[in-house]
């Protein structure tokens, strides 16, 4: 397959305010993209729109995922199709245990593929395997989803969920924020283990740190709802050392 994701001139608003102002992006299988950009530039908005958050309204443009019109699909359908969003702020769900949550999710995915539901033992085996990838203690499974998890534990839980669902395209929104150095390495190793030639990642981050472990093929800078610069992994170093000022100026001069 040539293109996994193809975003064309995407515009989106929230509460009547335009946040995305014409995004163009193509992601192919096997690629790792990094998206950087100042606070408030619209990175999380883009990921929310791709995951199907109904609070955002797409006002223009198209998004194709594996050749299908993504914008027509419900959030759960996007998940079944292979989109995964690692949330910048994972949601706490008191009263729903991690195990019940993920088991329901995995079995919904299986149902969609006409596979039988996993037995409790099968699920447990799979869960332990995937938890090991992010070195998460199995005791987390009986706790409410993200309830009382530390910032870093929540991010690890996101990667664990990703491992369980084995998506074709994972969008990780600041998965590195809040992680200590060891956790950062664990999470990055997890991503690298899950990386294949068939899947792709969009990594949203502010720092070069994470990209030392997960080497991106392409780096984009998003500013005021537009991608103002796209280049190879060296762009992340430029951002780290010089910040965004120069790029922004350049962009503004070019109109």
């Amino acid at each position: 397959m040539e293109k996994l994701l193809e975003i064309n001139n995407l515009h989106a608003t929230i509460s009547g305010k335009e946040i995305l102002k014409g995004i163009n992006l193509v992601v192919k299988p096997g690629e790792i993209h990094a998206i950087m950009g100042p606070n408030g530039s619209g990175k999380s908005t883009l990921s929310a729109v791709l995951a199907g958050n109904e609070n955002y309204i797409v006002t223009d443009g198209t998004v194709k995922f594996m050749g299908k019109n993504l914008l027509e699909m419900k959030p759960e359908e996007r998940s079944w199709a292979g989109i995964f969003l690692g949330f910048q702020y994972p949601v706490e769900i008191p009263g729903v245990t991690n195990v019940n949550f993920m088991k329901t999710a995995v079995n919904e995915h299986r149902k969609e593929k006409n596979l039988p539901a996993l037995s409790a033992a099968e699920y447990l085996k799979m869960m332990r395997e995937k938890m090991a990838i992010v070195q998460m203690d199995p005791s987390f499974s009986s706790r409410g989803v993200n309830v009382g998890f530390s910032g870093g534990e929540k991010k690890r839980n996101e990667i664990f969920q990703m491992a369980m669902l084995d998506p074709a395209l994972a969008i990780l929104d600041e998965t590195d924020s809040g992680l200590d150095v060891d956790a950062l390495r664990i999470v990055a190793n997890g991503v690298n283990k899950l990386k294949t030639n068939d899947n792709a990642f969009i990594i949203i981050t502010h720092y070069q740190r994470l990209l030392d472990y997960i080497i991106p093929d392409i780096v984009h800078v998003l500013y005021k709802g537009k991608i103002i610069k796209t280049a190879g992994k060296e762009l992340a170093h430029v951002v780290e050392t010089k910040g965004y000022d120069e790029m922004i100026k350049e962009q503004e001069e070019n109109g």
Binding site: K74, E76, S79, F84, F87, G95, T104, A105
Partner: peptide, 29 residues
């Protein structure tokens, strides 16, 4: 809770099931 529902749906849990999970969680206490 819309935020919880979206989080669950983004994991492939369909709307009805997500609502059910939330209600069960509410009743659990």
């Amino acid at each position: 809770d819309e935020g919880e529902l979206f989080y669950m749906r983004s994991r492939g849990i369909n709307m009805d099931e997500a609502k059910l999970l939330q209600q069960q969680a509410f009743a659990y206490a």
